[in-house]
Design a protein around this nucleic acid. Structure first.
Lengths: 325, 325
DNA sequence: ATTTCTATTGCAAACGATTGCAGGGCTTGT
DNA sequence: ACAAGCCCTGCAATCGTTTGCAATAGAAAT
């Protein structure tokens, strides 16, 4: 049932129906009400596709996470998902829908396809993964693109992110202040965010050596890696995990190995996902302020869509002190 | 840059360009390759909106979770999110995009708007919440709608779900087999799924009384409720939580109260979310087989879209034995 | 009574693709 | 040399809206 059908029923033109439904002032109150009633009665709702085509705006935002690194793990990462939750809330409040694209960057055209599809007014990316170059290239020609991630000097694309170097440093300083000596970083050091965390951690450690246990980021891989590491001789007395999920896996491996947390080994995570407060012992972690972060992202995106200039921004991380370190 | 522009550059008509790009056999190999090259060079990609309008199909599926009950909690529920992850994977594999709508059912038109927008070829709903009536009404006139939830006798809408009654019974039987006597159900008994779990649990308990600790489902509420309950005199020796997230909060409240799990109190959850394996002690729980479940959902939806008849289906729950019970 | 003005409404052209049908050029058979 | 057939390609309609502009009717002004 389209507007044209309603038009013949009401004995007016499609144009009038369209204007009546959108509350255009030039159509009389009486016809407006008459058409509205008719529309309600017959359950007529304008086709958004046609509308969007005509208006050249879609009311939708694409949200994607490039999965260059962790191919095994799809969208189930709790950090991504809670980011998604916040973004969804904000966008829906502003009248936008969300087009979720899971992206496995097989070809480097994935982002081009997304922005050129005409289906969205803007794109939000979570994480740069190994797609930095592609993002840079597309950002050059497509403004309404905002990325959660790190901001490198000379970078063209707009990012919102937390200060991962600072976060890593805070973690390191905290562990040192506890008198820990044998520091271990657990996680994949390749993605830019994690690289920064590790860099900050090392900076804090100063002269002290930092051992790196590089592994995939999915829970089982981390668990296996930590267990294997513990099976070797001297165990660390402090672990800094690249993410909370990794930290939880480490936690489990530790308890299984009969080690006390934080007595034998202090553990500190990153993100402060909801469940971090519910592990035992509750996880000390570096919080990324997603409430502010997502607000900034949406804000930046909408301003880019409106054609205004916007700068990259950084939200400060924060140490959340719980029992594990 | 549209197809028409490319057409003048190539010196052919838009029709030919369209056919060339879609690999239509009636356009010669040579022109086809020439146009393809030109398109690649200038980064021309057909506008999906126009395409969808013409083809009357969108290549997108709406995914929504009616949040009638837990208004405070948005999309961050790990169970929903991992369901989302699986669905996303399956749909993307089949070439569909996902339109994510967070739905706060203020008016009962939310679902009508979704199905009439023309933006999606079908709708997946996760949970019925208190929107049962609305879903029934819309399902009457709109076939490609599949719901994750319970199947009541006489119901019109198509559901895939796990057998919550059976799941509850399994949980109950397991706790009884451990010799537990003072049974406590923790969670919101109102939503249909939870109601069924409780019903099955009670059935298993037979004559034994089941205490119900009714509370909101967000972690803090559950934690507070359990703590308050433990502060009273006699504590239960077995807890069946309506979800894993609730179980984790209960776990925390228990350890804080100095109770041993499973020594003093056995705890069993529901869902088997990823993190259930990583709590300490690892959580015994009733798994909902999401791999099969989501496959069935997508399958049912696609067949409904194709106009085939499909029946509701139920996937059996399974006891996952870990340390907590 | 004629003109001017305003309040409504309709016409038709977009938006950017897809596709049935028709026609033009070229080969082939007789 | 002429008819028939086959490849290609283009014309134009279509999907369902929105909106600038023109047109009409009635009211108000002279």
């Amino acid at each position: 049932m389209k507007l044209a059908d309603l038009a013949v029923m009401a004995g007016v033109s499609t144009a009038t129906v369209s204007r009546a439904l959108s509350g255009h002032p030039s159509v009389s109150k009486t016809t407006q009400e008459r058409i509205r009633a008719l529309a309600r009665e017959h359950g007529v709702r304008p086709n958004q596709l046609a509308r969007n085509l005509r208006l050249r705006s879609t009311g939708a935002i694409a949200l994607a996470m490039p999965l260059g690194h962790a191919r095994t793990q799809h969208l189930t990462d709790p950090f991504f998902l809670s980011l998604l939750g916040f973004l969804a809330d904000l966008l829906v409040d502003r009248g936008y829908d969300i087009l979720l694209s899971r992206v496995l960057p097989e070809s480097d055209e994935w982002l081009d396809r997304l922005v050129d599809s005409g289906r969205v007014d803007g794109v939000l990316l979570v994480g740069q993964s190994d797609q930095y170059a592609t993002i840079e290239r597309v950002a050059e020609r497509y403004a309404p693109l905002v990325v959660w991630g790190v901001d490198r000097p000379g970078q063209r694309h707009l990012t919102i992110g937390s200060d991962n170097i600072l976060g890593g440093r805070i973690a390191g300083e905290h562990l040192l202040s506890l008198g820990r000596q044998r520091l271990l970083f657990v996680g994949d050091p390749a993605p830019p965010e994690f690289a920064d965390r590790l860099a900050g951690f090392r900076a804090a450690a100063g002269g002290q050596p930092v051992e790196i246990l590089a592994c995939e980021m999915d829970p089982d891989a981390v668990h296996a890696a930590v267990r294997a590491r513990l099976a070797q001789g001297t165990s660390p007395d402090a672990i800094f995990a690249a993410s909370d999920v990794a930290a939880m896996s480490a936690l489990r491996a530790l308890t299984e190995a009969g080690l006390d947390v934080p007595g034998d080994v202090a553990v500190i995570g990153y993100d402060d996902v909801t469940l971090a407060a519910h592990t035992s012992p509750p996880l000390t972690t570096i919080r990324q302020d997603l409430v502010t972060g997502t607000k900034l992202m949406v804000d930046a995106l909408l301003r880019r869509i409106a054609g205004e200039p916007v700068q990259s921004a950084i939200v400060p991380p924060e140490l959340i002190l719980r029992a594990s370190a």
